[in-house]
Simulated scan of single mutants.
Amino acid sequence: MCGRLSLPRARVHFLALALERHHGPLLRRNPFVEAGLSAEIFDEQAVLRALMDLLYDEPTHRALADRRADYLRALALLPSAADAVRAALRRPQS
C-alpha cells in the first residue's frame, strides 16, 4: 500500500443497474456528477484506480476540491426555488 491514508474520504455512490435506464439521462453532463469520480463497476482496474486516487492521490484531491468549488459557484448563480416558481407563474400561458 501507499503509506498513510490521505483524507478526506469521499462517499461512494452506486447506481443500481435497473435505475441506469431511468436516471442515466439525468446524470449525463450533470455538473454534480462531474464534481466527483466515476468508473464502470465491471472495469476492475478503473474502479481500483479511482479508489486509490480517492484515498491517496493529493492532485486528485485538489482537482476534486476545485470541481466541487466550481459546482458550488454555479449553484450560487441560480435563482432560488421561490424566485423560479414566481417567474414561472408570471409567464403568459399559451
Rank of each mutant, 00 (worst) to 15 (best):
residue 3 G to Q: 11
residue 3 G to D: 10
residue 5 L to E: 14
residue 5 L to Y: 07
residue 5 L to R: 03
residue 7 L to M: 15
residue 9 R to K: 13
residue 10 A to S: 13
residue 10 A to W: 06
residue 11 R to H: 11
residue 11 R to V: 09
residue 11 R to Y: 12
residue 11 R to I: 06
residue 13 H to C: 08
residue 13 H to F: 13
residue 13 H to V: 14
residue 14 F to I: 12
residue 14 F to T: 11
residue 14 F to N: 05
residue 14 F to R: 06
residue 14 F to S: 05
residue 16 A to H: 11
residue 17 L to G: 11
residue 17 L to K: 04
residue 17 L to P: 02
residue 18 A to V: 11
residue 19 L to F: 05
residue 19 L to E: 10
residue 19 L to I: 00
residue 20 E to H: 09
residue 20 E to C: 08
residue 22 H to R: 06
residue 22 H to M: 12
residue 22 H to E: 14
residue 24 G to V: 02
residue 25 P to F: 02
residue 27 L to S: 01
residue 27 L to E: 01
residue 27 L to N: 00
residue 27 L to V: 00
residue 28 R to A: 09
residue 29 R to F: 04
residue 29 R to A: 07
residue 30 N to F: 05
residue 32 F to N: 03
residue 32 F to S: 02
residue 33 V to Y: 01
residue 34 E to H: 05
residue 35 A to S: 08
residue 35 A to Y: 01
residue 36 G to P: 00
residue 37 L to D: 00
residue 37 L to G: 01
residue 38 S to Y: 03
residue 39 A to E: 04
residue 40 E to I: 08
residue 41 I to F: 07
residue 43 D to S: 11
residue 44 E to A: 12
residue 45 Q to G: 08
residue 46 A to P: 02
residue 46 A to E: 07
residue 47 V to E: 00
residue 48 L to Q: 11
residue 48 L to I: 14
residue 49 R to P: 08
residue 50 A to T: 05
residue 50 A to Y: 06
residue 51 L to Y: 01
residue 52 M to C: 13
residue 52 M to R: 14
residue 52 M to V: 13
residue 52 M to Q: 11
residue 53 D to Q: 10
residue 54 L to I: 04
residue 54 L to K: 01
residue 55 L to Y: 04
residue 56 Y to Q: 04
residue 56 Y to N: 07
residue 56 Y to R: 08
residue 57 D to V: 06
residue 57 D to A: 14
residue 58 E to W: 03
residue 59 P to K: 12
residue 60 T to M: 11
residue 61 H to I: 13
residue 61 H to Q: 14
residue 61 H to Y: 06
residue 61 H to R: 13
residue 61 H to A: 13
residue 63 A to L: 15
residue 64 L to R: 08
residue 64 L to P: 07
residue 65 A to K: 07
residue 65 A to P: 02
residue 65 A to N: 10
residue 66 D to R: 15
residue 67 R to W: 00
residue 67 R to G: 03
residue 67 R to E: 01
residue 68 R to Y: 09
residue 68 R to A: 12
residue 71 Y to D: 00
residue 71 Y to K: 06
residue 73 R to V: 02
residue 73 R to L: 02
residue 75 L to E: 09
residue 75 L to H: 06
residue 76 A to W: 06
residue 76 A to E: 09
residue 77 L to P: 02
residue 77 L to D: 12
residue 77 L to G: 10
residue 77 L to R: 15
residue 77 L to T: 12
residue 78 L to A: 14
residue 79 P to H: 09
residue 81 A to L: 04
residue 82 A to F: 10
residue 83 D to N: 05
residue 84 A to L: 05
residue 84 A to C: 02
residue 84 A to Q: 05
residue 85 V to I: 12
residue 85 V to A: 07
residue 86 R to P: 00
residue 86 R to W: 01
residue 87 A to M: 03
residue 88 A to S: 11
residue 89 L to F: 05
residue 89 L to M: 12
residue 90 R to Y: 01
residue 90 R to W: 02
residue 91 R to S: 12
residue 92 P to W: 01
residue 92 P to F: 01
residue 93 Q to L: 15
residue 93 Q to D: 15
residue 94 S to C: 08
